[in-house]
Design a protein around this nucleic acid. Structure first.
Lengths: 184, 184
DNA sequence: GTCTATAGTTCGATAGAC
DNA sequence: GTCTATCGAACTATAGAC
């Protein structure tokens, strides 16, 4: 892995775990095992590192949803998404949802980074909406927003109360909700 | 309003609007119209100002739920809560939920401030749980976590997509959900 | 109690040797 | 391309006059 990749991976990890504003260039450089001054050869500003970290999240998100495409029904794909989130509940208890917690900080800005956060979050909502559409639901967009919002909210509560069982319990409710829905 | 109160009010506003880490003591002092150095007569550290801001949120939250106590049924009280959130949708589109967005930052810390965030969020969940219990629901805690998580998640999405209509639409869904529940 | 001035630190970013 | 050294700005916090 070359230095640029190491920097992006370190940025994605540390910005998520510590928060965007709290994290310094030196934190990222240390994690990537790259000398501090060398960072600026690859990224002109800290904001460019934040943007690269969000794009890394977008890639990870696409990789996950792509893997679900092998499943035959949209209902099975949605349930696989929930199962994946359940597996990350320990991490959520410590740091929240990667996309959600970074978006919470970036959403307050009015530079380009809030747009980047909206794009990544939009990828998730759009994919979920597509599954509901395939299920023949006319209210697919509303259902998708509801599902993603529920996950984001329970990620926040799981983090604030530092209790992974909270995530597990609420995801079971969402599984039941999906099961009870009409359509494929 | 004396200087201490002005500082707490300014802290609650600016820390919410800009985020905890991004906000400086000077930002708070300027908003409170108090000279920078004078802040430290009332608060020894920035963290103490953050804690005071969270306690101010707790007071506001208690004032709101106390006002709902005049309503005769728990169902009416929950619907009043949702209606209050709907009125704040423009603010949510700009900065998210006050308690939620500050808790998202504080949840990653391991000093006492994450406990403070958990306490404030706990006040809300506990009050909602009490309403569901009065409705005779055995799963009152789960329902309360679900409702608060939905609100927190939709606050995040409303902020990220800068779209107050998102909040309005999802709160309508929650109103319908409450209406359809068994019990008072 | 109030305020100015500034100490002491840390940060983002750059210059320039290699 | 890589790295050290460091600049200038911004921050938290304190010292001390009034």
């Amino acid at each position: 892995m070359d230095k640029r990749e190491r920097l992006v991976a370190a940025a994605a990890q540390v910005l998520y775990e510590q928060g965007v504003e709290k994290t310094t260039i030196a934190d990222i450089a240390r994690t990537a095992e790259v000398p501090v001054g060398n960072v600026y050869y690859y990224f002109k500003t800290k904001d460019q590192l934040v943007e690269a970290a969000m794009e890394e999240q977008a890639r990870a998100l696409r990789a996950m949803t792509d893997a679900f495409e092998t499943l035959t029904t949209p209902k099975a794909r949605l349930k696989a998404l929930l199962a994946g989130w359940a597996e990350q509940r320990e991490q959520a208890a410590r740091f929240g949802c990667p996309t959600g917690s970074m978006s919470a900080e970036l959403g307050k800005r009015d530079d380009g980074l809030n747009r980047t956060a909206a794009t990544v979050m939009g990828l998730l909502v759009d994919w979920v909406e597509r599954q509901f559409t395939l299920m023949g639901r006319a209210d697919a967009r509303e259902l998708a927003v509801s599902l993603v919002a529920s996950y984001q909210g329970i990620s926040l509560l799981t983090n604030v109360f530092a209790d992974p069982a909270l995530m597990a319990g609420q995801l079971r409710r969402l599984q039941d909700w999906i099961d009870a829905l009409d359509g494929g």
